[in-house]
């Protein structure tokens, strides 16, 4: 809408807000609500996991041993690092340090790409070994519910992977805007929101890693 008003600073806020701070606050509430619904979006998979694990613990034990926990642990470290650089990026944006913002956001993208590459090798290995969702499962196993674990594994990590991909797109977008020197103490809403989203994506992985890889 063309009806924008000017504040003393650079940023134009939408016409129905009192001031830039009012707009920032509203956007932040919106983002937290979005993340709340994300929790419920993942919830059924966690319920399915709990259900099948509690009824068939032996199958889940067997299946978990078929995953490579070292790769999982490596990826956990990668994602935690990316969360750290993201936080540094948000901080730099708030202080109007454009080049630092770009640098930290680029690092965050780098980490998330490393994460996806590792995930790619994990997936191809599983596919070659026939460790696939139940309908296509062809690996010799002892328990007949073990394939269900892999259905849940692929759904959970796949859904998480899609979130990582979307995150990379979003971070790239704010990186370009940071390059244009659009952010500063007056206005850094998009960086803040993408940051929240990214921490959420990391947090999901922090739950997935022990639940899937570390059943002993």
């Amino acid at each position: 809408m063309s009806h924008t008003q000017t504040t003393p600073g650079k940023h134009h806020f939408a016409h129905h807000f009192k001031d830039a701070h009012h707009e920032f606050d509203s956007c932040k509430v919106g983002m937290w609500l979005f993340l709340l619904q994300e929790v419920l979006f993942f919830a059924p998979l966690f319920v399915a996991y709990s259900l099948f694990r509690s009824t068939h613990p032996e199958a889940f034990l067997e299946a978990s041993h078929l995953l490579n926990w070292k790769l999982g642990a490596f990826n956990t470290a990668v994602l935690i690092s990316s969360s750290f650089t993201m936080a540094l990026g948000v901080n730099a944006a708030q202080r109007g340090l454009h080049r630092k913002t770009v640098k930290y956001l680029a690092l965050t993208i780098l980490f998330s790409i490393i994460f996806l590459i590792v995930k790619y090798f994990e997936y191809t290995h599983k596919i070659h070994a026939g460790l696939l969702p139940a309908g296509m499962f062809s690996h010799p196993v002892q328990h007949d519910k073990t394939p269900i674990f892999f259905s849940i594994y692929f759904m959970m990590t796949g859904l998480h992977g899609i979130h990582v991909l979307i995150g990379i797109g979003l971070i790239f977008w704010i990186m370009m805007r940071a390059k244009n020197e659009e952010f500063g103490p007056e206005y850094f809403t998009p960086v803040e929101l993408v940051g929240l989203y990214w921490h959420f994506v990391d947090l999901v992985w922090i739950y997935l890693f022990p639940l899937l890889y570390l059943i002993r």
Partner: peptide, 11 residues
């Protein structure tokens, strides 16, 4: 792809 979570024939 038959993930089987809701399908009794796949467990």
């Amino acid at each position: 792809m038959g993930i089987g979570i809701f399908d009794a024939t796949l467990g």
